[in-house]
Nucleic acid binder design. Structure first.
Lengths: 203, 203
DNA sequence: GTCTATAACTAGATAGAC
DNA sequence: GTCTATCTAGTTATAGAC
C-alpha cells in the first residue's frame, strides 16, 4: 500500500482487510479469517498492526490522502471550472470503481472508528468535499453554472458518483469512460433537455 | 410496526434495533444492549423473535413493502410522467429522512442477510427501483425527457436521493420540502443552466 | 411476557518458541 | 516474521422459574 510495487505482507493484509470489511462489515470480520486469506496465522497480524482498529484506520487514511492529492494535481493543471469539474467527476468514478473495497470501507465504516480516528478522517473527507465545492463556486463566479445551494449540490454529486462503484460490473457492457460521460451529461444538463426548459420551476 | 398506533414490545424492539444497526452495524450490535434499550432483559428478545437475523429481516421487509405500496398509490393517481417523477422524488426523500434508521439499514445491511432472506429483499428492491425506471420510460415516450440510459439514470437518481438522509439535519435550516425542490430542479435541469446549453457534448 | 442462569462458542489480543 | 497456545471477555441462543 505504501509502495505499490512491493506486495509486502502488510500490503496484502490491508488489501484483504478492505475486501472483508466491505463484504462483512468491520465488526463482522474476524482476524483469524483475515490472517488466513493473507497467508498467515491469526497471531501474526499483530506483528504488522497493533489492533484491528489500526487496520481500518490505515485503509481510510491512505485512501483519503491519495484522493486528495490526486484531485489536487488534476485540477491544478486546469484553469477552466467547467473542465475542472469534468475531470473531477471522471477521476472520482475511476478511482472508486478501481478501488471499490477501499473506497466503500472509507465511506461506510466511519461509525467503526474510535473517536480520535474519526475526527482525523472526517477532516480529510471535508477537505476532499471542499475541493468540489470550490470548483462549483468558481463555476458560478465565471457564470458557467447556475446553482443556489452549492453544498447541497456537491453532496448530491458525490453521492451519485460514489454510487457507481456499488453497481459497476467490470465484466458488464459499459466502460468506465462511458459511464463518466453519462454522469457528466446528466449532472450538467439534467434529464429534461432543452425543449422542456419552460417548466423551470419545481413546485 | 405492524400497527403503528400500539407501541407493543415487538414494535419497540424493531425500532431500537434499526437505530442500533445503523449506529453500530448489524454485527456490531449485541442483543443485550438491544434488549436493554427496549426495556427488557436479553433472553426476553427470544419471546418476540427467533433470532437476531429475523429482526434484521423484518425491518427490511417492512420498509420495502411500505415503500412499494406508498409509491404505487402516489403515482397511480397521477397520469403525467413529469409530475409523477416530481411526486416520487418528494416521497423518496420524505420517507427516507423520516425513517432514517430503517431505510439506512435496509440500504446498507443487505450483506448481513442469510442467502434466502437476501433473495427476498432483493426482489422487493428491484420492484421499487423498477417503478422509477417505468416513470422515466413513460417520460421519454411522452417526449418530456431525454435519456439514453434509463437504468443508469434511475440508479443515479435513487443514490442521490437516498444520500439526503445521510446528511439531513432535522434541526438545520433546510425543510424537507425545500430540499426536495432543489433535487427536482437539479435532476431536471442540471447545473449548467439554459445559457450554456451549447456545450451539449461531454467529451 | 419477562426473568435469571448458563451452555456453547467465537472474538481480539498476548506470550514465548523458532 | 511467523508459529502455536492461551487468556479473557463477549456473543447468540436456550431452559426453566415466576
Amino acid at each position: 500500500m505504501n509502495n505499490p510495487k512491493v506486495s509486502s505482507r502488510k500490503t496484502i493484509i490491508l488489501r484483504e482487510a478492505a475486501r472483508l470489511f466491505r463484504e462483512k462489515g468491520y465488526s463482522g470480520t474476524n482476524l483469524r479469517e483475515l490472517a488466513k486469506s493473507s497467508g498467515i496465522q491469526g497471531g501474526s497480524i499483530y506483528h504488522h498492526f497493533s489492533s484491528k482498529q489500526e487496520i481500518l484506520y490505515q485503509i481510510m487514511e491512505y485512501t483519503m490522502t491519495i484522493l486528495i492529492s490526486k484531485i489536487g494535481e488534476l485540477i491544478g493543471s486546469e484553469p477552466e471550472p467547467f473542465e475542472q469539474l469534468r475531470k473531477a467527476i471522471r477521476f472520482h468514478i475511476e478511482y472508486h470503481t478501481s478501488n471499490v473495497n477501499e473506497t466503500y470501507v472509507t465511506d461506510a465504516e466511519l461509525r467503526s472508528l474510535t473517536p480520535d480516528n474519526y475526527k482525523k478522517i472526517v477532516v480529510l473527507r471535508n477537505k476532499y468535499e471542499h475541493i468540489y465545492i470550490q470548483i462549483i463556486k468558481d463555476g458560478i463566479r465565471a457564470e458557467k453554472m447556475k446553482i443556489d445551494d452549492v453544498k447541497l449540490v456537491s453532496k448530491a454529486l458525490l453521492q451519485m458518483l460514489t454510487g457507481v462503484s456499488y453497481w459497476f460490473d467490470p465484466n458488464g457492457s459499459l466502460r468506465i469512460n462511458e459511464i463518466a460521460n453519462k454522469y457528466i451529461k446528466l449532472f450538467f444538463w439534467g434529464i429534461a433537455g432543452k425543449d422542456n426548459q419552460n417548466h423551470e420551476e419545481a413546485s
